[in-house]
Amino acid sequence: PDLGLTQLFADPNLIENLKKNPKTSEMMKDPQLVAKLIGYKQNPQAIGQDLFTDPRLMTIMATLMGVDL
Rank of each mutant, 00 (worst) to 15 (best):
T6L: 15
M65K: 09
L3Y: 14
N17R: 13
T24L: 10
G48F: 15
S25Y: 08
A46R: 10
K20S: 14
L57W: 09
D54F: 02
D11W: 03
K36I: 12
L18V: 01
M27T: 02
A35W: 05
K36V: 08
P55Q: 07
I15Y: 03
S25H: 11
S25L: 08
I60E: 00
L51A: 10
Q49K: 13
D68G: 03
M27S: 03
G66L: 09
T53W: 09
P31H: 07
F9P: 01
D2N: 13
G4V: 15
Q49P: 11
M28N: 00
M61H: 04
M61Y: 14
E26A: 10
N43E: 05
K36W: 07
L51W: 12
F9K: 01
A46D: 12
P1H: 10
K41Y: 09
P31C: 05
K23A: 13
G66I: 07
L57V: 12
D50G: 06
K20W: 06
L3K: 12
D11K: 03
K36L: 12
Q7M: 13
L5T: 07
E26T: 07
M61F: 13
G66E: 12
L69H: 14
P31W: 06
T63E: 09
L5N: 06
K29E: 09
Y40S: 01
N17Y: 15
T63C: 07
E16N: 11
P31D: 09
I38R: 10
K20M: 12
D54V: 01
T59Q: 10
K29D: 09
L3N: 12
L64D: 00
F52D: 07
A35F: 06
V34C: 05
D2A: 15
T63M: 14
E16M: 10
I15N: 01
P12L: 05
Q42K: 13
K41R: 14
G4T: 15
L33V: 04
D54T: 01
Q49F: 13
Q32M: 14
L33H: 00
G48Y: 15
V67F: 14
P55I: 09
L37W: 01
A35Y: 06
I15P: 01
L51T: 06
L5P: 07
L57R: 00
Q42G: 10
Q49I: 13
L8T: 04
P44G: 06
I47M: 09
L64V: 07
G39H: 14
P1F: 02
A10T: 12
D30T: 01
E26I: 06
Y40W: 08
L3V: 13
L33C: 02
T59D: 04
I47F: 15
T24S: 03
K41D: 03
D11I: 04
L8H: 06
P22F: 04
L64Q: 02
A10V: 07
N43P: 02
Q49G: 10
N43H: 08
L69Q: 14
L37V: 05
L51V: 12
L64E: 01
D50S: 05
N13H: 12
K41A: 15
L37N: 00
T59V: 13
Q32A: 14
N13I: 04
G66W: 06
G4P: 14
F9L: 11
E26S: 08
L69P: 13
K36A: 07
I15W: 05
T53S: 14
I47W: 14
T6R: 12
Q7G: 11
L69M: 13
Q42D: 15
D68C: 04
P55N: 08
I60V: 07
K20L: 11
E16Y: 07
L51M: 14
Q42S: 14
L33S: 00
E16V: 08
M28L: 06
P31G: 06
L33K: 00
A35M: 11
G4R: 15
K23V: 12
R56P: 02
G66N: 11
N17I: 14
K20F: 05
V34A: 04
L14C: 05
P44C: 05
R56E: 04
P22M: 05
V34K: 02
D68R: 02
V34H: 02
P44R: 03
T59A: 10
L5E: 04
D68Y: 01
T63Q: 08
P12V: 07
L37E: 00
E16Q: 10
Q32W: 14
L3A: 14
A46Q: 12
P55S: 10
Q49L: 11
T63I: 15
L37Q: 00
T24D: 00
K23R: 13
T59G: 04
K36P: 00
L18Y: 00
I60L: 06
N21C: 06
L3D: 11
Q45S: 14
I60W: 02
K20Y: 06
V34N: 02
D54A: 01
D68P: 01
L57K: 00
T24H: 03
A35V: 06
Q32H: 12
E16I: 07
Q7C: 10
P31L: 08
F52W: 13
P12I: 06
M61K: 03
L33G: 00
L18W: 01
